[in-house]
Structures are given as C-alpha cells and as structure tokens.
Design a protein around this nucleic acid. Structure first.
Lengths: 348, 348
DNA sequence: ATTAGCACTCTGAGGGTGCGACTGCTAACA
DNA sequence: TGTTAGCAGTCGCACCCTCAGAGTGCTAAT
C-alpha cells in the first residue's frame, strides 16, 4: 500500500501518526523536525507534509494548524505495525487464566472483559454459529399445563433452552423416556445432522406403530428448531465509549449520533453480530479504520479483530474504539488474546 | 408532605413543574400568571414564587431567569400525582402480550422492553432471588475429563447451569442415575430446603454403605451451591440515556460523569441490582428523585419502580430517566405494567 | 392583599482586537 | 537539485466590550 512514498516521507508520517495518537492535537512541522531524527529543518518537513497531504494521508483541521492523520494515514501506520508484529509473551499467562472458565461462554466473557481492560476500549468476543456444533444432551422438563422446557446441551458446554407447547399433553415419565431415546439415538451428531436424521425418521413408516418414538421425535424436532443458529456475543466496556466524547466534543452533533448508534448496537447485539460476521472471512488479524467501515455509523470508530479456533469452529474477538486509538497496543492485545483463546480451547 | 402551602401556592407549583417538564426551560412569573387560571398578575405570582423558593421547592438558574423545580419541587408534584392515580385500562392488553412469553425470563425481557419503549427511558425488570423458588429438575451432563455440567431448572422456567469438577470421574450412566435419584427425592422443595435436606442426608450413616446415593448427594450439593442466589435483571434502552445529554449539555462535566457511571451500572448489572434491592421493601409504586438517591451517581436521575408478585416471590420493574422526566406517563406505564406482569404470572 | 411601575441584574449574541501558532512561498545557499 | 532561513499571510481563539432582552425584587399606590 502506498509504495510510492520515500523513506523519509514514511518516517515523518509514522512519527506524526504515533504522536497524534498520544497527544490528540495537531502535530506541527517544527515538532516533527525536532523529534524525527532526520536532521532536517521544519521548512523541509513542511514540504514533505505538503506531499503527504496531496496523497490524502494527512490533513489540516484549519489553515494555521498542524497536521492530523486521515483514515488513510492511520491505515498506512497500521499496515506498518502489522508487518512488524512482535512475539507475544503474555499468551501462556492469559491462557492459564482463561482455562479456569467452565463453559465456552464463560471463557469468552472473560476474554472480552480482559480485552476491554487492557485496551481501555470496548472488548467483544463472539462464538459464531457453526454447522459443526454437536448435540451432547437433550432434556425435556414438564412445566405447568402442556408446556415443556427443552434444554439442549451442545459441545463446549453451550446451553440453549426454550419452551415449547406440543399438541398433546405429556407426563413426566413420557418426557423422560423421550429424552432417553433421543440422547441414545442422536447425541454426538451435529445439530444440523440431528435435525436431518430426526426428519428422516419421522418420515419412515415405523413411526406410525411406535407411539413413544413418534412422540420423542416430534418433541425433539420442535425443540431443536433454531437452536444453535444464533451466535453469542459478549461485550464489555461500553461505558468507556463515553470517554471518546470528552476528547472529540468539538463536532458533537455527529459524534453523539454515532455514539448513540453504537450503544444501541451493543444493546441489540444481533445488529452488531451481523456487522462482525462480515469480517470473519479475513483470516488472522484485521483492522478496519473509520470510513473503511461499510456502515456509516461506524465511520467514527475503528475495529481491531482477530479470529480464534475451537476445533473446526471459528469465532471472533476484538476491540472497538475511536479512530484515534492506540493501535499498537490494541493489536498486541487482540493478537495475544486470540492465540490464548485458541490454546485454551484446545485444552478443553 | 409540605402541608404548609396554601392552595394557590400548590397550584402555581404544580403548573410550574408540569410546564417545565414539557419545555425544559425556566418558567417566568408572567407565563404562570397567564396560564394558571388564578386571575392574578405576574407580580403576585412573583411573591408566591419567592415563598416557594424559601421552601426550597423552586430555584433560579440565575438572577434574571425564571424558576425551575428543585428535587423537592418534583417530589411535591409527584406526590400529587400518586394521590390521584388513574385506573389502568391497558392492563389486559399488556397482560395478553406478556402471556405469550415462554419463561419468566422472557416475560421480564419483554416487560423491560415495553417499559423503555413507552417511557422513552431505560426500562428494567428484576426477578429477585427468593427463598421460595422451587427445584423442579436437575440434570448432570458429562463433559470431557472429570468436568460435569449441572443444569438446574426451577419453578417459573428459571434455568441455571454451572460446571463443576467432582473428585472422582463419573461416567454418563452414573450421572444419569444420580440425577434420577435427586429428582425423585428433592424436586418440589425450595432450593433452600433442598440444600438443607441434602446436607442432612449426607450426615446420615446410610450414606457410608450406599455409594451411588453418596455420589448423587455430593454432586447435587456442589451443583446447588449459589444457584438461585443471584437476581436476574433485564435492562433495555441504555442508548436513550444519551438523549438526556443533549438537553443538559450545559453542565456537561458532572452530567457526563454520572452518565458514565450509569452506563457502567447497566453493564455490570450486579451493582444496579444492589441498588434496586433497597427499594424492594417499599410496597407498591415508588418514585425516587435525584438527590433522594443514597448513591451520588444517581443524583442526576430519577427512578420510578413498582413491585410485582409471582406467587410468594416479589420482583421489581421500573424506569430510570433524568430528573426532568414525564412522571405522569412514567408512573402510569410502570403501574400498569406491574399489574400486567403480576396477572400474567398468575396464569402460568 | 394585590398590582403597576421601575430600577436592577444577568445572560447571551454580536462584533472587534490582538496574540500565537503554523503554514506556504521565495530567495539564497550547498 | 535539494535544503533552509526568513517572512508574509491565514486562521483560531481568548478576551473585551456592548447591548438588547428577559425576568426579577421592591416600592408605593390602590
């Protein structure tokens, strides 16, 4: 990306972005001349900055101000960071801490919490739906009236439950038997396979003669509908979003709107899930900066995400913060955490 | 409360508070003189306002501004509203809608959603811990290694699950038998009673000879620890809190801090639960206004809450918004909803 | 007790000024 | 040809002043 920059231009840009991220104020040519270790005067730096501005990498908030990175400028900076990523030393420690979690859900909750804490931004962790999640155990519990509670336990300690209302009334013993039958016949299959197999059996003629079996199959069919199709998303640190406001209170109208949109997204997780799913395909670490987002509500924010593996399932973890984010730190944290999560899941 | 006000003073105050809630701007003496239907001049109103100010019911943001209610002023207004509460007509409709929910958890989720939508503030619904929640069904599922997933179904479709790691390894069949035994012996008891009974049995001598039973009891003991002690809280509409900001952007330093505190609370629900539990004792509808809150973070917000009954359990629903809130509407919504929730739960 | 009238206070918008921060450009220089 | 010192120019911002408008408190008359 942007290979048509001289070495000197690169160095000035990197220094500018790095410093702006720290200070949050426009960087002047004289400051860069003093601190860039290039031994050139501010006038020279001004020339360089003019070129960078032509390339759309930096801009001036107003005529007599220093330069500020554009989203493209951040992109350049981040690409530089991604190229020279460091060894992660804290992975084993993180992994050990994550390993204490009982279910996958607990583990991801911890991970998102840790991401938020370490990055000072919003941390999230998503265990995506998977065709390959397996049915481990099913249970039917009679509630009052005809209503039946279905509890589905899937691999990784993932639990779903829902209430169904079958045609006929079911007593406890019958439900128990039905669960036994289903567990015996279908556990170990993926949810997808199990649904298929159940439909298949229902179509066979034997069902007509075996009332018990028919009942079990129908319960299971209703009970397994939809289960496992929703991703689960853990989000932590939403209150930290407000800190971004303090800094950027200048153009508050736009910021406040996007902020509200973001808080809304965090509340209604399914919208956020939809958005994150886009980036799942990109393997490894992904950084999406401001206007690179397809959704306008995200133009004021950046996303640092990475995938993790749980057997053949792929999930996503990451961090959401303002475009003026400490990318270096965020990338290190997300990278380390994704490795730690993958390893912790291997052990389970 | 404040019975030492003349009728005229009351009417002026009520008009002032009502109008300020609508407009959000200080109310002048001349406006009140024109709209209070008392047939007095603005000078007279000014005298009255001076008295009200002595009582601490209204205040002036600055010398040449109109009056604004203080928290005490809101209190007076709200007490008036509470005295003359209206019949609720929409209860049956709400009730019917709530009844469609499967579990109690779903129902409360719907209720909090509806509260937020109708009041335009943050809506919440809390099913508190209870000594009287009953064990309906327990299940042990073997995960990899020694780890065992315990699923506890309690009355009202409330589900808890946790992973435990017993001393000895357990195979599937043994777990199954253990669950059967526990279900047979202890289901129907409250969680509290069940825990007691299990401890009692463990102390008896028979246990020494009956390995199966001992195992079952130990699993259940570990599995039931803590279960049902946490309240569950549903919160909806956090993004609406930001709207309060737009209006009160003036004293943004304080507001922003409290806002952050509030968003944090909504994220870390246990802190909010702690706070709400205080108000549980107050039977019926409770309104807590700004500085009446014991926690300073809440001084900028008001709470309208009411309890509902689920058999002998008591839960709380309500609304959180700025002190300048449409109390009339909020009270009606919360009142109606609490009745609807109680009725919907009776039907289950 | 009420009210008209008036002096007073305070806010907030509008406008002018000067300072400081940077830049872009130019001309001299290596 | 690239670099730099110097300088003029631009802009934001803090500051000051002013003035109209809004609303009050007080007083004297009814």
């Amino acid at each position: 990306m942007n290979p048509d920059l001289t070495e000197r231009q690169r160095r000035i840009l990197a220094r500018l972005v790095g410093e702006y991220i720290e200070q949050g104020e426009p960087i002047s040519s004289s400051w860069l001349a003093e601190h860039s270790a290039l031994g050139v005067s501010s006038a020279t730096v001004r020339n360089i900055l003019a070129r960078l501005e032509e390339h759309g990498l930096v801009r001036q908030p107003h005529t007599s101000a220093g330069r500020v990175p554009t989203d493209s400028g951040y992109r350049f900076y981040v690409d530089g960071l991604l190229g020279a990523r460091k060894r992660q030393r804290l992975v084993p420690e993180l992994e050990a801490r994550l390993r204490r979690a009982g279910t996958v859900s607990d583990l991801l909750e911890n991970a998102s919490q840790e991401l938020s804490r370490a990055s000072h931004h919003v941390g999230f962790a998503m265990a995506p739906a998977s065709q390959t999640i397996r049915l481990q155990h099913i249970d039917f519990v009679s509630l009052d009236g005809r209503r039946v509670l279905v509890v589905v336990v899937a691999t990784g300690g993932q639990i779903n439950h829902k209430v169904i209302e079958p045609e006929e009334e079911q007593d406890s013993a019958a439900l128990h038997e039905a669960a036994n039958y289903i567990n015996h016949e279908f556990s170990g299959l993926t949810l997808h396979e199990a649904r298929g197999a159940i439909l298949e059996q229902l179509r066979q003629e034997r069902v007509v003669y075996d009332v018990l079996m028919a009942r079990a199959l129908r319960l299971a069919q209703t009970g397994l509908e939809d289960v496992g199709s929703e991703e689960t998303l853990h989000v932590q640190g939403a209150s930290l979003l407000l800190d971004g406001l303090l800094g950027e209170l200048a153009d508050r109208d736009r910021t406040l709107d996007t902020l509200r949109a973001l808080v809304g997204m965090i509340e209604e997780k399914h919208r956020l899930i939809q958005l994150l799913t886009q980036y799942l395909e990109a393997s490894g670490l992904t950084v999406v900066i401001g206007s690179e987002h397809s959704h306008p509500d995200f133009h004021a924010f950046s996303l640092v995400a990475s995938t993790f593996q749980d057997g053949d399932r792929t999930g996503t973890i990451g961090v959401i913060g303002p475009t003026r984010m400490r990318y270096q730190r965020a990338i290190a944290v997300v990278d380390g955490m994704s490795q730690a999560v993958t390893k912790a899941l291997e052990g389970q």
